[in-house]
Nucleic acid binder design. Structure first.
Lengths: 209, 209, 209, 209
DNA sequence: TATGAATGAGATTTCATTCAT
DNA sequence: AATGAATGAAATCTCATTCAT
């Protein structure tokens, strides 16, 4: 689904090599930023020649779109299996997963955050569908939890969805860079398992008394 | 307080011109990003020669730091007067102010967001003090509200501070770019005054029953 | 031996091209001086794009050092074979060789002279070893000639070495520029073979009676 | 005598200020070189404004010529009084004076050396008359000394003049930069008074037996 | 006349993209 | 298909010279 940003040549090389290139490119993009990274550096860290990279992706913009789309696809897969259980445990699972992913792939988070900048507006189309899915997921989660009593039914479901989204975003953002990690520690110092801490408190807050 | 990133020459030119340059630079930085912006473009949009721009700021890095520091100073001023009233009205004031500022200055928000990226780690020192202030402000607000009954005293104050910070960040972020505006509309469609809506619901949620 | 001032890429291009570039750079440096030469001009006279020149030498400073070092290496080779014969013929050979080299490569002489200027102190390390060798060569030559009767043994050998060095330097310098050529003609007008003339007179002067 | 390279304005300012500017300019030129020095830096070290410097000298080239001409004039004055006495003491006086001058004004020496470079050929006209005088002085000195027995009459006077010039040049050059000082110490280590040492040995060498 | 801010041509350097091998 | 050297447009930065005050 979605446009293809690579050449036929890229389709013909071994799966393993393809993966390696995409992974290296994503890491490099996360580390140096979209306009900060140089094609030569991506090629080098992927272990291929400068020329080959251009034979796989016609321009730098194509490569960026390919990485962004792939990130979106991976994210989509991650949420393919809807979580089950009561609201509190679902929240724990979701926030923990977000926290773990962000911790493992700070580069990807940094890249994903950079898509919200005005300067990168031209890549927005490649993530908007994903955001639509995410919004629907929050919405569905809230509806279900309201039915099952995990969320006080007097609360506006749109507000709750916004809250959950904001919390998840803040949690992930706090793994993106040194600055964000320091900021996080200013607000929540000495918390061993932040995702669980937030999930627990949030579930308690939202449950009707 | 804080290092100065401009030359003596810059101090000597008319206040009006100085403002114009800083404003143009901030706008351009917000629009094109730290590594995407070109000095020539800033000079042009400020109506000066690019030779002059370099006579004010020794390097592009100096200019970026000057803008970032200035943004931090402006932010600090904005919060210099502590809000008064009950928790709900304070929250309304704070979120509304955040919303208005972000709407007026989406470029600054975009720039401020970009400081959280790994690639811009070297500018972190210029905003960390500001973040420290912000964390303290949230903390103080929560403490006061707990004392006065605006916040249920059984809630962990660190969690509440985190929640307020996340909500404010999300609200501001939603003004930074087209993408974020669209995302926001997916979660909170047809809300006329989002800041007030969030403030109202949040205050109700956090108040003891 | 000595640091390398060029990139790997430069090692990989054809020998012939490498030589052409170094020669063009040396010629241009000699002609326009270290701070007067422009990289674009060197590239042009070497018949390459100036992008390529920077892919061979990271900065202008690197290129200058490469040329200076190379000049030193060439000089070292030139004196690798110790001259033989009696003092007078050795002196004739040495001064003639100096004269010929200087006449062929006035640019190199001009460059070499410029290394003695205060402004170019930072390149001194690249030629000092060569000067050390030269001093030792004079010293050895004097010692041998004293033993063999070519130099009056009552003369202070350090003084003789200084004299030989001064004469050789003056001879070479007189080929560096129009000014020096004119100065030389003022002192030694109508001498057909200056190197031989100086060598002959100097040998006669230094020989014991 | 010689063209004037400054404006009328420069003639009207106080003698003391004029001197200060010329001195500072000479020092700066010697330190950083003709194409390396910046007009702004000269103005600053002379304690005048950037604009004033240009109101005194129409272009940088004019300023350089003014300094070079002035250096030549000063040199001419220095030799206005012909030295008297026997050859050995004259030689001592001359070389000692050269050594002292060079030690006091290494900047001037460096500047004077730089005029021998091809890149500075356009300034040659301003020093050639001086060189002519110098050549004549050596010539006259040799003639007199031959008559009075200070120099062996069998020696070619042109060769002797060349020798004296080379020795004086080498002596002065050895004060121009760190590199030259190091080179000098390699050839003549541990000599307390080099000028006297050279003069004494040279006089002995040239005197008839 | 003195000042120093302003200018812009020109220098160094970077890097996406091309292309010969 | 793969390589990496070559290219040149464009960016950062410098500085002699001008000119308004």
């Amino acid at each position: 689904m979605g446009a293809s940003y690579h050449t036929d040549t890229f389709d013909k090389i071994p799966e393993e090599k393809r993966e390696r290139i995409l992974r290296a490119a994503a890491e490099a993009l996360g580390r140096e930023g979209i306009s900060g990274i140089r094609m030569a550096e991506i090629a080098k860290s992927a272990g291929i020649s400068h020329g080959s990279l251009f034979s796989y992706f016609p321009t730098k913009d194509h490569l960026v779109r390919a990485i962004v789309s792939r990130g979106a696809d991976m994210e989509r897969e991650r949420f393919d299996v809807p979580p089950s259980g009561d609201f509190k445990s679902i929240l724990e699972t979701v926030l923990d997963s977000a926290w773990e992913t962000a911790s493992d792939e700070e580069g990807l988070i940094s890249l994903w955050l950079s898509l919200s900048l005005r300067e990168n507006a031209r890549f927005a189309d490649d993530v908007l569908p994903l955001e639509r899915d995410a919004a629907q997921r929050w919405s569905k989660l809230v509806d279900t939890a309201r039915d099952e009593g995990g969320i006080d039914s007097r609360l506006d479901p749109r507000f709750v969805a916004f809250l959950l989204d904001a919390v998840a975003a803040q949690l992930m953002k706090s793994r993106a860079s040194d600055l964000e990690r320091k900021k996080f520690d200013l607000v929540l110092p000495d918390i061993k398992d932040p995702a669980a801490f937030i999930a627990r408190n949030l579930a308690a807050l939202l449950r009707r008394e």
